[in-house]
Amino acid sequence: MGISVQDVSKQFGSFQALDQVSLDIKSGSLVALLGPSGSGKSTLLRLIAGLEMPDSGKIWLTGEDATHRGVQERNIGFVFQHYALFKHLSVRKNIAFGLEIRKASARHVKTRVDELLELVQLTGLGDRYPSQLSGGQRQRVALARALAVEPQVLLLDEPFGALDAKVRKDLRAWLRQLHDEVHVTTVFVTHDQEEAMEVSDELVVMNKGKVEQIGTPANIYDHPATAFVMSFIGPVNVLPSSSNIFQNNGFDSAHPEMFLRPQDVVIDTSPNGNTVEARVSRLIHLGWEVQAELSLDDGQVVTAHLTRDRFDELRLVPEQRVYIKPKDAKSFPLYYSI
């Protein structure tokens, strides 16, 4: 086991940041801690790193109890959201920092730094200072610096949060690729579900200091365990269970609300079995998809996503009458709002 967290709690003043959290992370895997701000994901990462100490519970790293070990002795690599590069040191010196602390020989330091510069595709920029690099380059230096000491686990706190959209996308793919080369157990924190699903082997969805669900991206998307997970991972319609759209189609539930994904709304131009009638109130073109806002006769508004092909086939226009039914819908015992 790479990392094991057992019943860990952490409080800041009166704020319960983490509440009895347990978690196992396989060695060599790439795991995303996903949740809204205040969900405790960053706190959990800092506890694993040893930058914070838990109020109760235990943290195991590679089979050893590390709860009371200082951050220096945990042999972790940590990448901060705002890079935290040493501003007064060159890129080379930044990357070499951990090795020099460990009193590595000058020759070893040089070869290792060269290796890492190549790995993060910054060969030739070793003599620059952090202020002379772009955001994406800085984050890659931060990664190289963390990897230099060959850590047992690599921890990344919102690593792409401060970058613009295009660079973020590139770096995500690059991080995934890097992990496939280096194979170090990696945990990264993000609030972006798309990012989490794209990069990680496994997702840990957190909310209000607790773990809501752990699983592969596909598993969590298809089988959300709670209302929170369902509404946090991807867009969703929340409608009363009593609505005709569910009643006519056998989606009955003891719970007052049903969750319906926009792509699970089936649209037709003529009545078909158990469909209910709706009016197209708005159409939004998203390129590869069309988003249709549909008003039901009982006043509910349903948002549907349909592919461009299907849209062209139906030739939808605003104010048109259509007939819809749900392909799939879910309900949960408790509904959390976000």
């Binding site: 930058l51 951050v71 220096q72 940590f78 705002h82 935290a84 602390i101 931060a142 610096r145």
Partner: peptide, 18 residues
């Protein structure tokens, strides 16, 4: 300057003095 750089140094193995 924030505590970020100091924390980064610690994660890289530096003790308080270093």
């Amino acid at each position: 300057a924030g505590a970020d750089q100091e924390e980064a140094a610690q994660t890289l193995g530096a003790n308080g003095w270093q």
